[in-house]
Design a protein around this nucleic acid. Structure first.
Lengths: 212, 212, 212, 212
DNA sequence: AATGAATGAGGATTCATTCAT
DNA sequence: AATGAATGAATCCTCATTCAT
């Protein structure tokens, strides 16, 4: 059972190195944001020299964008949208909120870094910001679809309002949790949020299509 | 024969210089966050040499903290809480939300910079972050008091939950507005938010002290 | 006779520092060209830290341009055009050539660096190159004027041809001297050059305005 | 049943790769000089990875030297010295100058890069510079021989002076052309140059061997 | 109250080169 | 014959800060 362990360490293995760099970068960027993330710090944390980082990523911008992409994928996996067809509308709404709450506790890097990037308003927008807004847009569309499925009677404006409010609540609760730590019971808060959005949707639906 | 014209231009006037520095600093820090704000950039924008900034502020940390303080004051003035005693509870809730929405559109720097600072997780926490969390705490207490006044029957946990949710909604809606610009009708969204919080409070109050 | 030698060294004196930097930069840039001139090398040679160089010059481009400007001034002083009104035309031509030859032996940095820059063809042309071509243009105009004064009968094309040839000879002889060192007797070669240009001019003048 | 189509593309063919590298390198080095030529840039332009360049050339120095050698060969082919035995001395002189002028317009890389290298004065002289000076020396000898053939009466000093002046004129006119582009009519200028050198030679010959 | 000049540490990025495959 | 990956030294330049005036 001889394994060709001749892989003398330190020589070649692009894929693994790329991961190591990204691992280090998520951690640092998730804590310090774009400007706070120095290539030297990433290099120190992942063990590869700074110049090696530039073999794998064109520049810092490219690295951060890759960080966003990968941490979004990680987060998406954590949300693991379950079978979408069972339960009452309220149950399904609440179940989804629970998933999101759990995913944000488990994989907060994506949203923390993303929000930091989103809040910046610098002339030369970092590509990471663009990427974040794009994937966020995708997530937003999912919510829109869900609302349209659960409340078919709603007009577009109402759907848009509810989507915006749903996302805003998630962002805001995440921020509260980041600030106050465990003092914020994220699952409970998301449960409340889900119910309020549900009530609001129900109310809007009734008003726009009143029963005879 | 007093010669007041000897005020040879540029000689003295600390107060004005301090303001000019802060003006420049709010703008830059509001766009780029803590790390993204360089003394050189502030110097370039306000016209005073970097060394002059250090005459007015101990260090960068001190400057950013001052920025937070002043932009908080600006924002507070924009909220201009009106007489608190009139109208129905719902009217008062909605009125307050309208005020906050307006203030966030008019003076967004405080919250934008503050949230950026709040999201960061760096070893040596900048004083600006502490200051932001403190003034935010004060604002949070105001909300707590308002809720307690309007819904005397609520227990502490419910009040805390509602406060958290109210603040989270404000933060989240602000973020949405920062991201999507005028596509987000902040006053309308805050109105919805106020009503939902109000409904939630009413519901909690009924449950904890049911009428016979 | 106490001198206020309190000038504790190392503290302030912009003008002198600027000169020291330029002194170092001429030397290095004159030897190694634009790319070969590293800020670190200039810093080492002049004793000031690299960051101080950036106090005096915006960037490397700016430094090299200043080097060209100053070394041109130095060279111009070395040419010390003498009273222009005496002697026969040939004597004046030859005297001028002697001056130029002497100046190029004494202050070769200007032309050496300048030619290196001039030969480069990079997309983003360094400002130093532009400056060199401008001052060179000025020098060229002087020669044109001199030719027009000495040979009033020549048409514009002839004057232009002669100017080009005169300058080309100077450049080429300088290059030969740079390559072969003292094996090239620059004054003698410039003397020959002057006579040949003079003969050429005379020939052209006769042809264009033949005596009956 | 030989399968020559197995030449699976990209496998083997050192000669072509070498040419591609040299093609890229001449272009870049001719534009930016020694220091300005980075292996990465050559790699990008020729499509081969940097490490492949090191398979064909020992190091950067070796590459640049090869560039000089090849571009000299190219230039030499462009000069295509014609049968040396016909015509009057002046005709032959003028014909040669015309050839050189044409070759410098068609293949300017050799001289442009060569002059850049020649002007540099760095401690560790690049091999490319040495190579350039050597091939230039050969070209110089050709001119010396030609002068000796056409003007057998001249002493060594005169021949040396004329050779130096002839080469200097060529260099200088080339530089003028590089700077001013098509505004310089290189063939015409070389024609003038040839005639002036010829006149000078004639004059020197008469003086050293006066007719009885 | 203000500022010109200086400075060391650190920023991102590119360099020429090597080596295992 | 070729190349993906790695690497340390060097690149230009900016940083926050200090200090004599």
């Amino acid at each position: 059972m001889t394994r060709p362990q001749t892989t003398r360490r330190k020589r070649a293995n692009g894929v693994e190195s790329r991961q190591r760099i990204l691992d280090a970068a998520v951690e640092i960027a998730g804590e310090r944001g774009y400007e706070g993330t120095s290539i030297a710090a990433v290099s120190a944390k992942c063990g590869l020299p700074a110049s090696s980082i530039y073999w794998h990523f064109k520049d810092k911008d490219d690295l951060i964008a890759a960080v966003i992409e990968r941490s979004f994928a990680t987060w998406l996996a954590a949300v693991e949208l379950p079978g979408e067809g069972y339960g009452t509308p309220l149950e399904r709404t609440v179940a989804m909120a629970a998933n999101v709450a759990k995913s944000l506790v488990e994989a907060p890097d994506f949203l923390r870094l993303g929000l930091m990037l989103a809040l910046e308003r610098r002339p030369a927008e970092p590509r990471g910001r663009t990427v974040f807004l794009q994937v966020r847009e995708i997530a937003g569309r999912k919510i829109t679809e869900m609302i349209e499925t659960l409340f078919p009677g709603l007009d577009d404006a109402a759907v848009h309002t509810l989507t915006t409010y749903a996302v805003a609540g998630a962002d805001g609760l995440f921020v509260q949790r980041e600030i106050h730590g465990d003092a914020v019971d994220l699952p409970a808060m998301f449960d409340l949020h889900a119910r309020l959005v549900f009530d609001a949707a129900t109310g809007m639906a009734e008003r726009s299509a009143p029963r005879p």
